[in-house]
Design a protein around this nucleic acid. Structure first.
Lengths: 136, 136
DNA sequence: TCGTTGTTTATAATTATTCTAAAGAAGATT
DNA sequence: AATCTTCTTTAGAATAATTATAAACAACGA
């Protein structure tokens, strides 16, 4: 449970002006116990439902990208026509239920350590992501 | 080096009629030594270049999807605006050079074994994919 | 050869995302 | 508080990838 005040500080600390819209988006994204997987469209609809206030789609895009850039959101690679984001920005992996189009977190302990025994000169590893697809 | 005749058989065996267009696409996709990573648009352009014959974009989409369904192509999960495919349908992983937008194969030996120590009732694992993003 | 069914194609439609430019709000300065 | 600057929001247009449509065409079987 985070308070409005905390969100305002968080935004200020990131040199993002604490606007009504951004605070509403924070409420929806970060005011929850469990990690949250979503598409922009999910979020767009949830904001209306949860806060009663409408935020334009463009602002949702802007804000999600801003939060992603600041490291408050993580983009999840799935083959789908829509981009998925995750409020859990720690290093972790995912199940993807292909039929239900649903993402499920894998704790780091759920996946053994991953050793990459190859390197490309001049490049360093930015991230290692495992995606486990599930079928019935 | 596969021959035209082999492609025709391959197509027939999959109950896909061996049309000129499909055979051309096979030549471009499967008549090569190394694995091939591509987007639909890459392929569309390559067909013109390599075979001299033009195939409509819609047919490229149709054929790639048909081949994917038959298991001759693999879709690769990357966060990008375009969908990537791979002619290497065996179980393997990838580097993705974020800057150059280029995929590089990881042999299975290059990645230690991956243990998934969690399961979802009623679901079974369809695939396990590792994507290693690279930066400079 | 003829009829059936599958395929190709140009084009239109759809969908996710980004761009644009004008109106509005936040922050700093006096 | 009034003003100025800068950032933000917004509706709507623009773009880009993909999918749908429906008519012309080609492969197959009888």
């Amino acid at each position: 449970m985070s308070s409005k005040q905390e969100f305002i500080e968080k935004l200020r600390n990131s040199s993002l002006r604490p606007t009504k819209q951004r605070i509403n988006i924070c409420e929806v994204l970060f005011n929850r116990d469990k990690t949250f997987h979503f598409t922009i469209n999910d979020l767009f609809n949830l904001i209306k439902d949860k806060t009663g206030e409408k935020v334009s789609l463009a602002t949702v895009y802007n804000t999600v990208h801003a939060f992603h850039k600041k490291g408050y959101l993580k983009e999840i690679p799935i083959n789908s026509n829509q981009t998925y984001f995750d409020t859990n920005v720690t290093d972790h992996h995912h199940f993807f239920d292909v039929k239900e189009e649903k993402l499920i977190d894998l704790k780091n302990e759920d996946v053994g350590p991953i050793e990459i025994q190859k390197s490309i000169p001049g490049k360093k590893i930015k991230s290692v992501e495992v995606l486990v697809k599930l079928e019935d």
